[in-house]
């Protein structure tokens, strides 16, 4: 795909917002790929962590927000724990989720959850799941 790259993509407000919310500096990432290598769910992501960061560096926030990746991140912190530049892809995914959730768009609806799950699952699964998926 042809991507027109301009100053406004790189110096955009939305990137600044993602950096502020996540506390991460996108430019620190040098694309070594360790996060994707470590990530237990990268196999199922439409855009794996390393490439997600790259696309953010290039200002392609919309493409990243459309992908399922941020919803699949399990916050296990393997990516961060092995990152040679101490960048947390998990934090960036959380920031992207926040970007979406703060607009009031939930990823999961409570009413859709099956009753056996609600009855049998540990409370922490429900609480943390709500925090991650529900606006």
């Amino acid at each position: 795909m042809m991507h027109k790259l301009a100053k406004d993509d790189i110096q955009s407000d939305i990137l600044g917002q993602i950096e502020r919310v996540s506390g991460e500096e996108l430019n620190k990432c040098y694309q070594c790929g360790n996060c994707t290598g470590s990530c237990p769910v990268s196999f199922a992501m439409e855009i794996p962590p390393t490439k997600t960061i790259r696309m953010l560096q290039l200002g392609r926030v919309d493409d990243v927000l459309k992908a399922n990746s941020m919803w699949l991140c399990v916050s296990c912190l393997q990516c961060y724990s092995r990152c040679p530049k101490a960048v947390s892809a998990a934090n960036l995914f959380e920031a992207l989720r926040q970007l979406s959730l703060r607009k009031g768009e939930s990823h999961e609806e409570i009413k859709d959850l099956p009753f056996p799950f609600l009855k049998g699952a540990p409370q922490q699964a429900i609480v943390s799941g709500f925090r991650k998926f529900v606006s």
Binding site: P40, V41, W71, L72, V74, S75, C76, Q78, H107, E108, D112, L113, F117, A121, A125, I126, S128, G129, F130, K132, F133
Partner: peptide, 14 residues
């Protein structure tokens, strides 16, 4: 030390 799937337990498609 790998993840069990964690809170993805909640999602409907996970």
């Amino acid at each position: 030390i790998e993840c069990c799937g964690s809170h993805l337990a909640l999602g409907k498609d996970n």
